[in-house]
Amino acid sequence: MRVNRIFLLFLLIGMVWSCKKDDDPGFETIPPRALDEVALENDASIKEFLATHFYNYEEFANPSADFDYKIKIDTIAGENANKTPLMQQVQSETVTVTNTDLGLESEQSVQHTYYYLIAREGEGERPTVADSTYIRYEGSLLNGTVFDGTADYSWQYLPFFLRGYSRGISQMKAGDNIVVNNDGTTRITNSGIGMVIMPSGLGYFNQIQGGISQYSPLIFKLDVGLMVPDTDYDNDGIPSILEDLNGDGNLNNDNTDREAEVKARTGLIPNHQDQDDDGDGTPTREEIIIDANGNITFPDTDGDGIPDYLDKDTK
């Protein structure tokens, strides 16, 4: 009997050891690269691309009757050696990106530069990063590989998309009218057409998405047809752009009742998607005042400097 017990003990130990070996993935997990290091590397690659490529600016300047108003990019070489490089035609803006924004553990805040081109100025209004837009786009890598795109316009609520993408769109103007053609189809007149070139910190960074490898700068060609001014996604009476409380252009990190949501394990809902921003049980719409002209007043009943709709101590 003792021998049997010893045998069973060794058998159990062997099984546990075997399971541990099987659980070993057999490879080393590589941590994400440093945000500042990647930002510098991406910016150098983008600048090189902008200095060595051009777009069909001459066609946009003198469009033929059948011109499709699509941006085409080519290398400055050979018969195109005298073309004006994109670097001389783009504009740029900087955005602060933190490791927290990208779901990374260490604390770091890095300035990222994105570049944008306006090939045709739209005749409509300019959307914000918080608006819904009716848009066509094509996404590609710096080497020209296309990874995504749409043939027709589709509605997009910009806070749900990449920061660099929404930032680029916010630099453009939409079209001004919908025209019904003789065959019953429709078209949008005077849409804004342009392009945004952005570092991976404003894109997918260390994530792998389809044909997009880690740390890849991205290009999006854009055709902005229409937009909804002062989009109020959650219909709480406050335009989404006003729910960007810290003013960083990223609406997804503004969540007044985050602590309570974490504690309750109900899922995190940022203010622009939350009809009760402070989680006090009173809908946001009932804690603000909207007059007949659409002007919004934010009462502060207890005078503590925090408006009622963000103050769980007032209802």
Rank of each mutant, 00 (worst) to 15 (best):
M1A: 09
F7N: 08
L8W: 07
L12Q: 04
L12V: 13
G14W: 04
M15W: 02
M15T: 13
V16W: 03
W17V: 07
C19T: 07
D22S: 06
D23S: 10
P25V: 07
G26R: 07
P31I: 13
R33W: 01
D36Y: 05
D36G: 02
N42T: 11
N42Q: 11
D43Q: 15
I46H: 03
L50H: 02
L50W: 05
F54H: 07
N56L: 07
Y57Q: 03
E58T: 13
E59N: 09
F60Q: 01
F60W: 00
A65R: 07
F67Y: 03
F67V: 04
D68M: 12
D68P: 00
K70P: 00
G78Y: 09
A81P: 12
L86E: 13
M87Y: 05
M87A: 14
Q88Y: 08
V90M: 13
E93F: 07
T94M: 10
T98K: 15
T98N: 11
L102I: 15
Q108K: 14
S109Y: 01
S109L: 07
H112D: 08
G122K: 00
T128P: 00
S132R: 10
S132N: 09
Y134D: 04
Y134G: 00
E138L: 08
S140A: 13
L141Q: 13
N143C: 08
G144F: 04
D148N: 14
D152V: 07
W155R: 02
Y157C: 00
F160Y: 10
F161L: 12
L162A: 10
S166I: 10
S166K: 09
R167Q: 10
S170K: 04
Q171S: 06
M172H: 01
M172V: 11
G175T: 05
D176M: 03
N177D: 08
N177H: 09
N182L: 13
G184N: 09
T189Y: 00
I193H: 00
M195G: 02
V196D: 02
N206E: 14
Q207E: 15
Q209W: 14
G211K: 15
S213P: 00
I219R: 01
L222D: 03
D223F: 00
D223A: 08
D223S: 04
V224I: 15
G225V: 00
P229Y: 03
D230N: 14
Y233Q: 12
N235Y: 03
P239Q: 06
I241E: 00
L245W: 04
N250H: 05
N252C: 03
N253M: 08
T256A: 05
R258G: 04
A260G: 05
A260T: 15
V262S: 02
T266D: 06
H272N: 11
Q275T: 15
Q275M: 05
Q275R: 13
G279H: 03
G279A: 04
D280T: 06
G281A: 05
T282R: 03
T282E: 13
R285H: 03
E286R: 15
I288R: 12
I289Y: 12
I290F: 02
D291P: 07
I296S: 04
F298L: 10
F298S: 06
D300K: 09
D300S: 12
D302N: 15
G303A: 07
P307G: 08
Y309V: 14
D311S: 14
K315T: 09
